[in-house]
Computed example of a mutant assay.
Amino acid sequence: MDTSEAETQLGFESEEDSEMSDGALQEAFAKGLLKPGLNVPVEEAKKLANNVEGMKQCLADFCKTLPWVERLNLTNLPVADIVAKAEGRLVAPDGEINAEDDFQREMYFYRQAQATVLEALPKLRKLNIPTKRPTDYFAEMSKTDQHMQKIRKKLLVKATAMEKSEKAKKLRELRKYGKKVQVEVIQKRQKDKKAMMTSVKKYQKGMTDKLDFLEGDQDKVKKSTGPSKAQLNKKGANSKRKFKDQKFGFGGKKKGTKWNTKESHNDMRGFRAKVAHGKGGKAGKASGKGGKGNKRPGKEARRKTKSKK
């Protein structure tokens, strides 16, 4: 049997006979030359070997040939649970923990790691191997500096946007509060005005004789104008004001200072009748009343004298 016949029997086709008609395929199937599953590869099941003895032998070889620094293998039991003893809680013996209790299981691993560290650190120091990271240690970053700069810029932009948003939010709240206060003030003014108008109408109609509604306005005027001059004078003038008062006087009202008042009109202690009416004394002699002084000619006599000249 040549190669072509063998391939035909096995269901393989050559390049020349790659296109077989349906009739040829049916005849081959009828003769038993075509069988299902010939072209499907069959994979054998993998054999899993658990060679415990071989693994132990390899571990023993490693321990004999490699130093401890290269292996760093330690087998330790967990340290004593000092916290539980201090709190007076019962501590389960090593190896008798509940595997379903997550906290108890993790604490067991944690105490076992503590025991390993306590045993490994003295060995490393004895071999002069540093166990602390130097101060000038720089780790190789997984991202480039350009990439980190981009991320930093994005974070700054995001932080700035959030800050602006917070400021805008605060401004909106302040505006709302300001509008609310303004509305309250306007309502209070309208209420006070309405109450005052009601009181005025009652007073005009004679329903009341009290003017208490005017006292409120006076109080408002006092509050708005601030302290009066009398209150300021009580505090005392400053040194500049005192110097000007000493140099130029105290100022004040000039016009009408010599006018009589009720008290000065009724005060007769300095009144002298002879002086007041020109009787006696220098005033009487000077005026010619009762004295020997020259009398001034009258107006008509003075006119005639001027005409004669």
Rank of each mutant, 00 (worst) to 15 (best):
E119Y: 15
K180T: 06
M197K: 08
G278Q: 00
E5L: 03
E184G: 14
V221K: 11
K170C: 10
A237L: 14
K282I: 15
R71E: 01
K234F: 15
K132E: 13
N233R: 08
I151M: 10
G270R: 09
K247E: 10
A49D: 13
P297T: 12
M107A: 04
N98A: 02
G281I: 01
G280L: 00
K292D: 07
D212F: 04
L48Q: 11
C58R: 13
K31Y: 02
L34D: 00
G178P: 07
R172V: 10
M148S: 04
D145G: 09
K46V: 15
D145E: 12
G54N: 11
A301P: 03
K304D: 05
L156I: 11
P67A: 04
K262C: 13
K253E: 11
I151A: 11
E5Q: 04
K191H: 13
A84K: 05
Y110F: 15
R269Y: 08
H265I: 15
G288V: 00
N260M: 14
S18G: 14
G251A: 11
D22E: 06
R296F: 02
K253W: 12
K279C: 03
Q146H: 12
K247T: 03
K167Y: 07
M207T: 09
E7T: 01
A230Y: 13
A24F: 02
K210S: 10
G280H: 01
F109P: 00
P36G: 06
R89N: 03
P41M: 07
E166S: 09
K167E: 06
V40F: 10
E53N: 12
G280Q: 00
D209Y: 06
S307C: 11
T131K: 08
K154L: 12
R133H: 07
R302N: 04
Q190I: 05
F271R: 07
A120R: 03
K308L: 06
K150T: 09
L72N: 00
H147T: 04
K132C: 15
L127T: 14
A301D: 05
K132I: 15
E163I: 04
A45D: 08
K56P: 03
G206W: 04
H277K: 08
A283W: 11
N128E: 15
R269M: 14
A115M: 09
R125G: 12
W68L: 04
